[in-house]
């Protein structure tokens, strides 16, 4: 009895952590409909989970290049291995505002993203998880460094 209470408590902890962690989590099905939308995504997009659940990703976020994203995601579904995007090559997936709107020096949030396969119990993959990392600080430092280097060359 006590172990099940313990497990319940741990489950609630995990849920609270997923909800508040400073990383975006989105679960998508085979048709790219949104199945899960955590607190980070809610806060930055301004859309509540009940507004996004079941909705198509590309309809809600026109900034995502559908063809490009599908090409990446199909590999994840089929190969069952993660795929990545990094801010140096593609500044963002979702057009979110910077976490620090006043002193942040850039309007949009730079993002790194991982697309993770979620296995069914039989090993097949019908869902993928998008993990969005805020890479704005790293990107700003890198841009500052590049500026500094090009100044030195002049």
């Amino acid at each position: 009895m006590t172990t099940s209470i313990q497990e319940d408590t741990e489950f609630h902890w995990l849920m609270a952590i997923l909800q508040t962690i400073d990383v975006g989590l989105v679960v998508l099905d085979r048709e790219y409909n949104i199945k899960l939308w955590n607190g980070f995504m809610e806060n930055h997009s301004g859309l509540r989970p009940d507004e996004t659940k079941g909705e198509n990703l590309f309809k809600l976020f026109s900034e995502i290049d559908k063809e490009w994203f599908e090409r990446k995601a199909e590999a994840v579904f089929l190969l069952n291995t993660p795929a990545f995007t990094i801010h140096e090559q593609r500044p963002y997936l979702f057009k979110f505002f910077n976490n620090r709107p006043i002193t942040g020096r850039t309007d949009t949030m730079y993002q790194n993203a991982t697309i993770l396969p979620l296995n069914n119990s039989d090993g097949t993959t019908d869902h993928i998880c998008l993990i969005i990392y805020d890479a704005t600080n790293a990107a700003m430092h890198k841009l500052a460094l590049d500026r500094c280097q090009s100044n030195m060359k002049d």
Binding site: K72, L79, N80, T81, P82, A83, F84, I86, E88, Q89
Partner: peptide, 21 residues
């Protein structure tokens, strides 16, 4: 240039990932 690097990473990720998994 950015797209070139991106596909380089994509190809690498697919080949690496398939083997590592």
């Amino acid at each position: 240039e950015h797209e070139e690097l991106e596909i380089l990473m994509d190809v690498a990720n697919v080949l690496n990932g398939a083997c590592i998994q």
